[in-house]
Amino acid sequence: MENKNSSESRGALIVLEGLDRSGKTSQSTRLHSFLDGLGYSVESWRFPDRNTGVGQMISSYLANESQLDDRAIHLLFSANRWEKRSLMETKLRSGTTLIVDRYSYSGVAFSSAKGLDIEWCKAPEMGLLAPDLVLYLDIPPERAAERGGYGGERYERLEFQRKVAKSYQILRDSSWKSHLFLAVQQTIDACCPVEDVEKQIREVVSDCVVTCQKGKSISQLWLH
């Protein structure tokens, strides 16, 4: 669903998705530097935002310091995104491009990997802002597990990450390629050298930012 009166120049909403240790954070940092160097107004965000009240509850859960029902933690992750929705839209309309490390797709992929119904997982995300570009950093779970720091948080277990990869594949086969979903979805081979991954991302992001500057409408996620 497109918002009316949104034909003015604006920033782009760019989301990086992928398994744990796929390189999202480092590529977000590199992309921020690239766009900033070109003179764009740009900010880097990540979800969960652990600085909010909801985010602190999520952080405790991820660090294995608390226990929550699978549905309860899913709704907290969703609430964490909703509490930033208004500011996100304000930033975009002011001309600031947002680079977001994880978004609704992570929430759905991880929760459905636990066995929750994928449509139930998507429901609380409906109406959040739809990205203009989704970059999926594709890496086999086994390769990601070899990277430094793996295993530090609750979800960084190889068998679980395999299930998450399958959930992402379902999303990529449906939502990301649906004509009802207005974002461009780009799969990036995250096994390539860091510089090669960065080059692939730069090319597709540059086109996206220009398109949004020309007045592409802001859309809402999974509403049709």
Rank of each mutant, 00 (worst) to 15 (best):
N3W: 14
G127V: 08
Y136N: 05
V15G: 01
Y168W: 09
G215Y: 11
L68Q: 07
P124R: 03
S217N: 07
N3P: 01
E153F: 13
F110D: 02
V100E: 03
I14C: 03
R202M: 15
K163A: 11
A123D: 02
G107R: 02
L87V: 13
Q200P: 00
A130H: 06
F160Q: 02
E83F: 12
C192S: 14
G127S: 05
S112I: 01
D49F: 11
L129R: 05
E43F: 15
I201E: 01
V209T: 10
K166E: 15
D189K: 12
M126P: 04
A190I: 05
L221I: 11
D69H: 06
A130S: 15
T187S: 13
L98F: 12
A12E: 02
V204C: 14
A165S: 13
L68C: 01
E89H: 10
E83W: 11
L35C: 04
P48Y: 10
R50F: 13
P193L: 02
R157E: 11
R157F: 06
N51H: 14
L171K: 02
R81H: 06
F77I: 08
K24T: 08
I73P: 01
E195F: 07
G152L: 08
G53V: 10
F181K: 02
E17L: 05
E2I: 13
I201G: 12
A72L: 06
T97H: 14
T52P: 09
S167P: 04
F160V: 10
L221C: 03
D138Y: 09
L133S: 04
D69R: 07
D189W: 09
E119R: 00
K114T: 06
L158V: 15
Y155V: 04
S44Y: 08
W45E: 04
F47E: 04
A183Q: 07
W82G: 00
V42H: 08
S7E: 14
R162M: 06
G127Y: 04
T29G: 14
E142T: 14
C208Y: 02
I139A: 08
E153M: 05
G39S: 08
S219A: 15
G18I: 08
E153T: 12
R50Q: 05
P48Q: 10
R147S: 11
A190P: 04
A72F: 07
T96S: 08
A190V: 08
F34H: 15
V100F: 07
K24C: 07
N5V: 06
E83M: 03
S9Q: 01
V194T: 07
S174G: 12
R30C: 01
K216S: 14
D20P: 08
L133D: 03
V108D: 00
S112M: 03
F110M: 03
Q56W: 10
W45H: 07
Q200H: 15
R154H: 05
E153G: 09
E198D: 15
R157M: 02
Y168A: 03
W45Y: 14
I73Q: 02
S44H: 14
Y103V: 01
K166P: 05
F110E: 01
I99P: 00
T90A: 12
E8S: 13
L182S: 12
S175N: 06
C208V: 13
P193V: 10
D189I: 06
K163N: 11
G39L: 04
D101E: 03
P140G: 06
G37T: 13
L137W: 10
V210L: 10
Q169N: 05
